[in-house]
Amino acid sequence: MNKDRLQKIESAGFVLKPDSPEIKPIFQEIRKLFEERGIRVALAERSAAMIGERGTPFEKMCEESDFLVSLGGDGTLLSLVRRSYPWHKPVVGINAGNLGFLADVTIEEVPIFLDQLFDGRYRIDCRLMIAGHIEKASGAKVEFFALNDVVVSSPIPSKMVIVNASIEEERFNTYRGDGLIISTPTGSTAYNLAAGGPVVYPLTRAFILTPVLAHSLTNQRPLVVPADFAIELDTEKYEAIATIDGQERYEIEEGDRVFISVAKEDARLLHRQERNYFSVLRDKLHWGDRNW
């Protein structure tokens, strides 16, 4: 059982769902709840500008906060985890979106969550992060982190790409199709699931390689490998892009190489103690629902 705990519960840094100024009254009410319990609230500059308030530079907010809060959907949380990764602060997601696999504290549950936080009835899950980089044929290097997945695909929808994949420097497959997903267990319920990949328990230490609409008569199936294996990808013949957590995009040209490995530090997601992953799957995916 993970014994990771918050050192202090005195300050929280908030990031809001982008391009959503209508979220302002919700944030103000949540901020009031935090402050009534003695928790100082800092709001990232970009989010503050969106709702007409003064904010704190993102780096300063991450450095000075005891934990971080995303108010939005899973996309907001993914962005916050990735951007705040160098500070290794626990992140909790308050769900103002729709699906909410990761941002699992509802707006109505915030008072209960705060009570449980001070009572020590919470847990911090350590989630595997991808540490990757792209080595350009020119010699340039682009580094990135991902919590969900890295997807290599064509910049033009439905156009084929050819992706060569190696594990531990040994070539094992060439994928021809719409793309290839390299997913973490956290990301297994995202694009990986839609593409026919397996759902993997989020604390598992593994990578999932899932082809997207393989243009092949051979049996191209998803592959699960231990997370301590280093993965290398390159493309040929066709233009390609690497998309990080569905949010960042990098051009991949012939001669470029994409390297993927497990990050040295895990992401830290703060949850209510009673949160049950299998209940989330049942509720979100309607497993066992005969009326669905």
Rank of each mutant, 00 (worst) to 15 (best):
K3D: 05
G13F: 14
V15C: 14
L16W: 11
P18N: 01
P18Y: 01
P21Q: 08
I23K: 03
P25R: 01
E36S: 09
E36H: 03
R37Q: 13
I39W: 05
V41N: 09
A42K: 15
L43H: 10
S47V: 02
S47E: 07
S47G: 07
A48C: 06
A49S: 04
A49Q: 10
I51N: 09
G52C: 05
G55C: 09
L68H: 12
L71A: 07
L71M: 10
G72I: 09
D74C: 13
L77S: 12
R83Q: 15
S84Q: 11
Y85T: 04
K89V: 12
V91S: 09
G93C: 03
A96T: 05
L102Y: 11
A103D: 04
V105H: 00
E108G: 06
D115P: 02
Q116Y: 01
F118V: 07
R121D: 09
Y122S: 04
Y122I: 03
D125V: 10
D125I: 09
D125P: 11
S138Y: 14
G139C: 10
E143T: 08
F145Y: 15
V150C: 15
V151L: 14
S154M: 04
P155V: 06
P155F: 10
I156Q: 07
S158D: 09
M160V: 09
A165P: 00
S166G: 02
E169Y: 06
F172R: 08
F172I: 14
Y175K: 07
G177A: 13
L180N: 05
L180E: 00
I181W: 10
I181H: 04
I182V: 15
S183V: 07
S183M: 05
S183A: 11
P185G: 06
G187K: 06
S188C: 06
P198T: 02
V199D: 01
Y201D: 08
R205N: 14
F207S: 09
T210S: 15
V212E: 02
V212N: 02
Q220P: 01
Q220N: 14
F229H: 15
F229I: 03
L233E: 00
T235P: 00
E236I: 03
K237W: 08
I241E: 12
T243F: 05
I244M: 10
I244C: 05
Y250S: 01
I252L: 15
S261G: 13
V262G: 00
A263Q: 05
K264M: 03
R268I: 04
R268L: 15
L269T: 08
L270H: 02
Q273L: 14
R275F: 13
V280C: 13
L281S: 11
D283P: 04
K284E: 02
G288A: 12
W292E: 10
W292K: 09
W292I: 04
